[in-house]
Simulated scan of single mutants.
Amino acid sequence: MSYEHILVAVDLTEECDPVIKRARELASTDETKISLVHVIEPMAMAFGGDVPMNLSQLQQQQTDQARERMRRVINKYPELIENNVHLPYGQPRQEIHELAKKQGCDLIVVGSHGRHGLALLLGSTSNDVLHGAPCDVLAVRLMKKAE
């Protein structure tokens, strides 16, 4: 089975390299389209919504950093052209699912740290994306870096 449009969800760290490389391997032909997505989460979500201060300046800095990091990824992988890159703002699962539907993607590729126990209970983006996805999902196992 070959895929026609692969959506690669990245966290814009160096850990996204194996995820992008795996998606490129799965792109069986030059006609296979690869799109990148990084979801910028509202800062209020990290604080449970109750924030006694204005986070707009911090949120803008977060957005600017995401744009710069995405530029670096594009420079590293020039075949991933600019119009296939998405930086939506919102909840990762919802934004990734919505983008996959809109773009007609038939595979979503995400990185997974394979967490267990408490880390698993706290949730992970790869686990969230899997549930309710409009297409196939591949979780690429990311190795823990030695400390």
Results as ranks from 00 to 15, higher is better:
residue 99 L to K: 07
residue 92 P to K: 01
residue 64 D to T: 05
residue 79 E to M: 15
residue 132 G to Y: 06
residue 111 G to R: 12
residue 76 K to C: 08
residue 92 P to Y: 04
residue 102 K to Q: 15
residue 130 L to M: 14
residue 109 V to K: 01
residue 123 G to W: 00
residue 114 G to E: 11
residue 68 E to V: 00
residue 96 I to P: 12
residue 79 E to H: 14
residue 114 G to V: 00
residue 82 E to N: 12
residue 74 I to R: 15
residue 112 S to M: 04
residue 87 L to A: 10
residue 69 R to V: 00
residue 120 L to V: 03
residue 88 P to T: 10
residue 103 Q to F: 10
residue 56 S to R: 14
residue 102 K to V: 13
residue 117 G to S: 11
residue 97 H to F: 06
residue 103 Q to T: 11
residue 62 Q to C: 05
residue 78 P to W: 03
residue 105 C to Y: 00
residue 106 D to E: 11
residue 134 P to M: 02
residue 62 Q to S: 12
residue 134 P to C: 05
residue 55 L to F: 04
residue 132 G to T: 12
residue 126 S to W: 08
residue 96 I to S: 10
residue 68 E to D: 13
residue 59 Q to D: 07
residue 98 E to W: 01
residue 102 K to C: 05
residue 90 G to V: 05
residue 105 C to F: 04
residue 55 L to T: 10
residue 129 V to N: 01
residue 98 E to L: 13
residue 81 I to R: 15
residue 130 L to T: 14
residue 93 R to W: 06
residue 65 Q to K: 12
residue 116 H to W: 08
residue 96 I to C: 10
residue 82 E to G: 06
residue 113 H to M: 05
residue 65 Q to F: 07
residue 77 Y to A: 07
residue 82 E to W: 02
residue 95 E to K: 02
residue 100 A to P: 06
residue 91 Q to Y: 14
residue 131 H to V: 09
residue 123 G to F: 00
residue 94 Q to P: 00
residue 78 P to H: 05
residue 116 H to A: 10
residue 75 N to R: 13
residue 109 V to F: 01
residue 100 A to D: 05
residue 63 T to A: 14
residue 131 H to N: 09
residue 59 Q to W: 03
residue 78 P to K: 08
residue 134 P to G: 03
residue 110 V to F: 03
residue 124 S to W: 01
residue 123 G to E: 07
residue 78 P to I: 08
residue 85 V to K: 07
residue 112 S to C: 09
residue 69 R to G: 03
residue 116 H to T: 14
residue 84 N to P: 02
residue 115 R to H: 11
residue 55 L to R: 09
residue 60 Q to G: 04
residue 132 G to A: 09
residue 90 G to D: 06
residue 126 S to I: 07
residue 87 L to N: 06
residue 58 L to W: 12
residue 68 E to G: 07
residue 126 S to P: 03
residue 115 R to V: 02
residue 75 N to G: 12
residue 80 L to N: 03
residue 83 N to S: 15
residue 105 C to W: 01
residue 104 G to M: 05
residue 88 P to A: 11
residue 56 S to E: 15
residue 84 N to S: 13
residue 70 M to Y: 04
residue 74 I to L: 11
residue 119 A to W: 00
residue 88 P to H: 10
residue 113 H to R: 09
residue 115 R to W: 02
residue 129 V to P: 02
